[in-house]
Amino acid sequence: MAGTKQARRAPADKYDERRNQLAESALQTLGELGYARTSLREIANNSEFTHGVVHYYFADKLELIVYCVRYYKARCVTRYDAVVDDSTTPEELLDAFAAKLVETLREEAPMHRLWYDLRTQSMFEVKLREAVLMIDQTLEDMIWRVVSKYADLCGRPPAMTPHAAYGVLDGLFQQALLGHLTGDAAAVDAMAAQVHELMPLMVTPAAA
């Protein structure tokens, strides 16, 4: 019986595996060209897959892009878990969080650029909105786990709502990304310094 169930699952597993392979391949092209300039054919031309194969697994560019970003962000939202779990002091958490922001910005700038591109496009492309809003919420939740742990380690409650904390830190990250992509060598380190300055303001002041 177990063998039968495994055999029945195999086609679906293989289908999902191929979609994931296509997503991995497509993300590089999307990160380089952006939403507007990328087509299914362009993705196929820059991968080991034919245009027919890409079109078989994804009906159109929009479906592929949404799948790609969901696939990528599903991995992103766990990258700060170790920061939260391993930090034992506010200073340790703040240092680890800022370092992780710097690392992901420098190493995965094209993917973050694609994310901000799609978030802007969702204001015009209705079919993108559900996925973008869902991903945005998972990112907000991720940031709030960091802020909440920082507040706990400080022994004081947060002074901001989750939405406000995410808006502040995401804004800093986006500005640093723009600076990094346009050749500002100081942008990334400036972001880390600003995170160190702003995080203490996200918890209520200590009693006098």
Results as ranks from 00 to 15, higher is better:
151 A>N: 07
105 L>N: 03
136 D>V: 00
159 A>N: 15
130 E>H: 11
102 V>I: 08
183 G>C: 04
176 A>I: 12
161 T>A: 12
172 L>A: 03
147 V>Q: 02
87 S>Y: 02
86 D>Y: 10
104 T>P: 00
137 Q>L: 11
96 A>W: 05
174 Q>T: 09
166 Y>H: 15
134 M>Q: 14
141 D>P: 00
135 I>T: 11
178 L>D: 06
82 A>M: 13
172 L>T: 05
90 P>I: 05
136 D>I: 01
96 A>Q: 12
126 V>S: 08
173 F>Y: 14
80 Y>E: 02
172 L>Q: 08
82 A>Q: 14
188 V>M: 02
125 E>C: 10
182 T>V: 00
186 A>T: 08
134 M>D: 11
116 Y>K: 02
151 A>L: 06
94 L>Q: 06
163 H>Y: 12
186 A>W: 02
108 E>T: 11
163 H>E: 07
121 Q>W: 12
120 T>I: 12
119 R>A: 01
140 E>C: 11
183 G>E: 00
156 R>W: 09
193 A>W: 05
151 A>F: 14
180 H>T: 03
185 A>F: 15
160 M>T: 15
110 P>K: 12
138 T>P: 01
183 G>N: 05
93 L>A: 00
101 L>S: 02
85 D>V: 10
94 L>I: 04
114 L>P: 03
132 V>L: 09
109 A>Q: 05
103 E>N: 09
91 E>G: 06
181 L>Y: 03
98 A>W: 06
154 C>M: 14
184 D>H: 08
182 T>F: 04
162 P>N: 02
87 S>G: 10
126 V>E: 07
161 T>L: 11
191 M>Q: 03
161 T>C: 04
91 E>R: 13
